[in-house]
Design a protein around this nucleic acid. Structure first.
Lengths: 344, 344
DNA sequence: TTGAAAGCGCTAACAA
DNA sequence: TTGTTAGCGCTTTCAA
């Protein structure tokens, strides 16, 4: 990419010292003594010439490229995209590292070849990310390498995981309901997502529901019903419409995802029910729509930025990586959709 | 990152040839003749050993790292995030390149230092991206380098730009309205975005409006009014509410952004007006919400993926870059919100 | 058709 | 305190 760059040899020559001296002066190491005079001259020459070290050349010797690779199934989907990357990127920048981004689209062969492309460029470590929390099997090329799993779990793979604390989020949702005075007529829409495609539910669903039910029980309350469905707007709309059409009169809906809430809003609106006057709504994720819905949605936020940031922090922390699961809190965003139930 | 890699020397040794021969055989070059026998043995040895070239070492000689850098003000904001990157990434992958992602957050100093970080790693080229279409001044470090401007324009900077064809999108919006039979009671909400922060409007606003008005005029129609405001949900809600409260009865709204449409829907709904029965809505962007709104929103799609893909294609196309503006079409997404006006 | 050797820009033993 | 030298893994000139 054009223009011969100034090399360390240029700096050494201008400062009238050997490359070794220049190297030590520039890297500011103390184990080799350099006279203040020499150091000064080197630094000045470097400044004058606008010298910048060639990281590629350096890494050929040191084996460290100051570069991290990210491999994900899909970076594009809204719920788990930009903020994760931004978190990882900023953590990288704080330590003068750069981030390679790749996306395999769920294709194993593509994944392997991308990991190779990364390894060929001597990345120092790899973040292996999933766009929704699930169990994964990282490609074999990653075995024995420095890896952090982001938003996924791999029991047989020796690496730390960083995931949202879904269980505690479920508990917090229940606490918020109880604190607002809700104890009856609470329905969970979306449930564990125990649908044909995922008959045993998904991690987020199972954990959220477990936390939710546990705290409700502790508070002497319980769910009046759980409706299992996909976590999408159309599903929320369809299921809540059906619920109301069957003559039920919920006082609070726990929607397992914001998209479900959006559908629920539409169904409630068509039935002439107001939020939170007639029905309170609390949900999970805190996607963009959550704050622009009217009334604004109370929801437990997926900590995207922090997930990405923590994953990168772990990688850049010196020393070996421990195969521990790090759970990042999902903060409650209190907004207008949750209020005390009206009597009657 | 652990495990000594197999080097070309290993391959050469195993094949019983010199590194030179191995290099030529592996790179499949024809200008230096290698006997089929030698080539075979080298290739076999490489396969057996699982040899992969060290791109870092290679680039020290060749000056090409097969690596492109992306510098953006902000990659996180929904409207211009994942798809752009995905487009660039896939175009890169098609040619065996990898993508560094950086984000400066609008900070000039950060921008410079990120460009340096990229240049220190010998990237072959840089994509300089903005998250909304505007005029920019790339950092001086980028002058004379191989650069493509993505979603931005810089008249004094010698590089190609890739931007959405906003003008033609405006024309298409008008054509869609006319084709549906609309000629009267058409209001533009959001306008040029000639608000205090951007008194002269923004590029997208100016171009969209220009195209819109031009074709309406050609069709013998015109806008009944243009309401200048920020392009956000709250603004759309506020302005359309006010419009209706003032006694106006629009037949079609051209919302200059989907977020505005979302606010408009809320205002129309509260006023008891149905879409598209009473009022048709057409807008721009095709964000996620556009398809989940009820009725689904007719809108002109920002071609994020293609923008990213084309920018990368241009960079990887051999030969010098021409300082041309490439305009990418914004396809019309015909959905339910636009219909023929009801008589009366 | 093949190999020896130099060199990309840097770091780091080792010697002075 | 400083300089000489080798070498990281690869490509490429030049000679054989």
């Amino acid at each position: 990419m054009s223009e011969r760059r100034v090399t360390m040899a240029d700096v050494a020559r201008k400062a009238g010292v050997s490359p070794t001296t220049a190297s030590f002066a520039l890297s500011g190491r103390t184990d080799m003594r350099i006279s203040d005079a020499s150091r000064e001259r080197v630094l000045e020459a470097a400044r004058d010439l606008g010298y910048r070290p060639n990281v590629t050349a350096r890494s050929l010797r040191t084996k460290s490229t100051q570069t991290i690779g990210l491999v994900s199934d899909r970076i594009t989907t809204t719920p788990f995209a930009g903020e994760v990357i931004r978190g990882a990127m900023e953590a990288a920048r704080e330590r003068d590292h750069l981030l390679f981004i790749t996306e395999a689209g769920g294709d194993r062969a593509a994944e392997s070849s991308l990991v190779h492309a990364l390894l060929d460029r001597q990345v120092d470590a790899v973040i292996y990310a999933s766009m929704f929390t699930r169990y994964v099997t990282p490609p074999k090329e990653l075995f024995g390498r420095r890896v952090v799993l982001l938003n996924c779990l791999a029991p047989d793979f020796d690496a730390p995981s960083v995931v949202p604390d879904e269980f505690e989020a479920g508990r917090d949702a229940a606490r918020a309901l109880l604190a607002a005075g809700h104890g009856e007529g609470i329905w969970a829409i979306g449930g564990h997502q125990a649908v044909p495609a995922t008959p045993e539910g998904i991690i987020a669903g199972n954990e959220r529901m477990r936390g939710l039910e546990e705290v409700l029980r502790e508070g002497g309350a319980r769910l009046e019903g759980v409706i299992e469905c996909d976590w999408d707007t159309v599903d929320g709309y369809r299921e809540v419409s059906a619920l109301l059409a069957a003559g039920n009169r919920p006082r609070a809906l726990v929607c397992l995802a914001d998209r479900v809430s959006f559908g629920a809003y539409q169904a409630l609106g068509e039935a002439g029910l107001s939020v939170p006057g007639d029905v309170s709504v609390i949900s999970f994720d805190d996607q963009d729509i959550a704050s622009v819905l009217r009334p604004a949605l109370t929801t437990l936020r997926l900590p995207h930025y922090r997930l990405g940031h923590l994953a990168m922090e772990l990688i850049l922390r010196p020393g070996p990586l421990e195969a521990v699961v790090h759970r990042v809190p999902m903060p409650l965003q209190s907004r207008a959709s949750l209020a005390a139930p009206t009597s009657g």
